[in-house]
Design a protein around this nucleic acid. Structure first.
Lengths: 282, 282
DNA sequence: GTTCCGCATGAATCGATAG
DNA sequence: ACTATCGATTCATGCGGAA
């Protein structure tokens, strides 16, 4: 029996079982935000913090198998506060996944611009989440140019001056030591980002419990895949990752246990127009 | 023999040994940024990543002893990349410190506005560090009002001045009012901050490598201590924490192995004026 | 007095080269 | 194979001097 890869679809069921029917080395990128500990027990089946690692590991074993050697796994997760302490299930999970064969390449920070409001006597609002990057191999695909951001003010004003004086009549400056460094910047208005992502949460989503802004998977999809690559979200929920992938002309596979979420995701996907090319707002 | 507490001083030596002569439960806040792995081998004695936890634990044992029950320990640290992966010594340290009796209360993120430049094929610049908060007891002292952030009119006018790129990249510039500037805005509308601190590193210090910017320890000192409380930095380096504490009228104790750093710290402390009373620009 | 501009300076990381 | 050293890369900040 040859295993087949169903793309551009939402599958309803347990990813741990469904992925067994997938061929190995077939996914370019996995982006997911798994059900969080204990929260929204009624809607998503919360997992007890002390069992979280054991619950997750057989799933990440399948992720490891289906991921292409040069692919990437992005895990959006944050430990909850339990009895006044940050629980350790996330850092335990990192250690266990390494034991499982994953490379822990990087930890991106999603800095939430508008985080959940509230006030506590011994704690501030939690404004960040981890986006853990795991890989199978040290060499993986990465398209850094696709996520470049506008340069800071620093050089902008400078280049304006430079172009006014230099370009037409003062070419000596460019050839002197002064001009050399600056000339590297001519024509560039963008810089590479850092490992901190500053994104707003989406507040309008009342149906689905996990607030996962579309721009977050979009950023990683642009960074780690090309057009027509295959993006998997094994806990796709209301479909944000699939929507982002479709919009960027990637093939998507979404999996979720909950039939209602699957319907919701399918409905959202129908309305998604493919973006020809991404453009930063200016 | 009664143990004595030497305050407002820089002690030269190994904190692990020197702290043995301190009484128990005498320190209100420990803020430190220990020597990082393998870096600055010549000046500070780099520690091998695989030995880092074993090196640190006997020291944190003393920290636990000298800290008051309602005190706080802030540990500024970040794991290095070793052979393409984030090393696990930091998360291992968290687990071991919990075993030692610490509560891991929170993890603040220091988002470095100006991080080290560079470009690599598989990695972006590292723009954040961990500020791990540990406590002895679930109930600890915290003065949240002292670090509130100006909002409202202030933010509006400031934001208007920001460039388009700044707004796009970094709407949370509102949060940059940490440290000295914040006193200018007492009495205005303020909000509580989050657990993400947006601060620039201090560059341009020619003599030494300045570990963290003064505003970082300042922020935690304001948050976790009152005037005349005792602040300890067991790896005080060039004295940033001690300077911050003195400026805020807290008692300081700085410890460092390196005599040159101790001298440097003492010299800097001489020039520090205590902020007896704030004066506000109107 | 402001504002503007040049410049040095980073708690970095990778890949190649050398031993 | 495994470690040590070096060059290349990159960009925000604060300072000092100039306009």
């Amino acid at each position: 029996m040859t295993k087949e890869l169903p793309t551009n679809t939402i599958l309803c069921g347990d990813c741990q079982k469904l992925l067994r029917d997938f061929p190995s080395d077939c996914i370019d990128l996995i982006v997911t935000s798994p059900p969080y500990v204990e929260c929204r027990k009624n809607t998503y089946g919360g997992i007890h913090p002390d069992k979280y690692v054991d619950w997750f590991l057989p799933k990440s074993e399948q992720f490891l198998r289906v991921l292409k050697p040069a692919g990437t796994f992005i895990l959006n997760i944050k430990e909850k506060v339990i009895r006044g302490q940050r629980h350790t299930y996330v850092i335990n999970l990192i250690l266990e996944m390494k034991r499982q064969g994953w490379l822990w390449t990087e930890e991106f920070i999603w800095h939430k611009k508008n985080c959940y409001p509230g006030k506590w006597p011994n704690r501030f609002r939690d404004a960040w989440e981890r986006c853990l990057q795991f890989n199978k191999k040290k060499k993986f695909k990465m398209y850094q140019e696709e996520v470049m951001i506008p340069m800071g003010d620093w050089a902008k004003t400078r280049l304006r001056k430079l172009s006014a004086t230099d370009k037409q009549r003062d070419e000596s400056k460019v050839q002197s030591g002064f001009g050399k460094n600056i000339s590297n910047w001519i024509g560039r208005d963008k810089v590479y980002p850092t490992n901190v992502l500053l994104l707003a949460t989406e507040c309008g989503n009342k149906n689905h419990s996990a607030a996962f802004p579309r721009s977050l998977p979009e950023w990683f999809i642009r960074l780690f895949t090309e057009k027509h690559d295959v993006v998997l979200d094994p806990f796709v929920g209301s479909g944000t990752t699939a929507v982002a992938a479709k919009g960027l002309e990637r093939a998507y596979i979404g999996i979720d246990n909950n039939p209602e979420y699957c319907d919701m995701a399918r409905a959202k996907l129908k309305d998604i127009a493919v973006q020809g090319s991404f453009k930063w707002k200016v």
